[in-house]
Amino acid sequence: MIERKDGQDPRVDDERPAKPVADVIVARDVHKWFGQLHVLRGINLTVRAGEVVVIFGASGSGKSTFIRTINRLEEHQRGQIIVDGIELSDDIRNIAAVRREIGMVFQQFNLFPHLTALQNVTLAPVRVRGWSRDKADQAAMGILERVGIPEQAHKYPAQLSGGQQQRVAIARALAMQPKIMLFDEPTSALDPEMISEVLDVMRELAESGMTMICVTHEMGFARAVANRMVYFDEGLIVEEGPPEQIFGSPQQARTRQFLSQILH
């Protein structure tokens, strides 16, 4: 399985990347077990700075688990994950350093319900980056404006719609000025009429040059924004390539079958 990947992607080789800045995420032969269940069975993936990668696949295929290993919400048990030149290990300083580079957006938003939208956004810059309250507030208002909800700054999450909550969650991640953004099915918990407001923010973010990995089934978004699409099945990358290839002429039978199920 690894040979196949190596043959396909010349950027994955056995030496450390010469310029870690260019390859901001390098995953080599990543394995993960939940008890007896082998959920990641040797994932190889390299993401360059500014690239937008969309990961798709059936539920249980390991795609969420994989992006959660990138900021160590899940621990990988074999293989290597290198983020911006820092290899993830048990060392909490490495984990902290990696998490400072990565922002994450969750399916269930996971906003802090006891804090206002603004406080949600400023918490980490103040406590982790050590910014002054004024500086953090100013930056946060700028970001809330960017995601289109500055007027909701002083509301609590429970007073916001799902789409607004997810945009606050994106603002919260952006406030840490990450180099990489991870999106774990960001629109799956939203009512249909709210999906586009979140996708618009993500599209704008991609156009600004942010490095993004998105687990999503929004194929319209993938076709328009992704540089590369990656199909996961049973803990493996079955196929990857630009959207034109995935939608136009998928190489693998399993990819074709999955796409035919979700694109009616």
């Binding site: 919400l73 902290a96 802090f112 918490l123 406590r127």
Partner: peptide, 30 residues
């Protein structure tokens, strides 16, 4: 406290102490 709260705090880079102080405890005690 839902695990999502703890994951969100971790993903933001809060330390264990900060996570308890600013996220977990205020909600749990309330």
């Amino acid at each position: 406290i839902p695990t999502g709260q703890i994951e969100a705090a971790n993903a933001l880079g809060l330390s264990a102490v900060q996570r308890n102080r600013f996220i977990v405890m205020p909600q749990a005690l309330r």
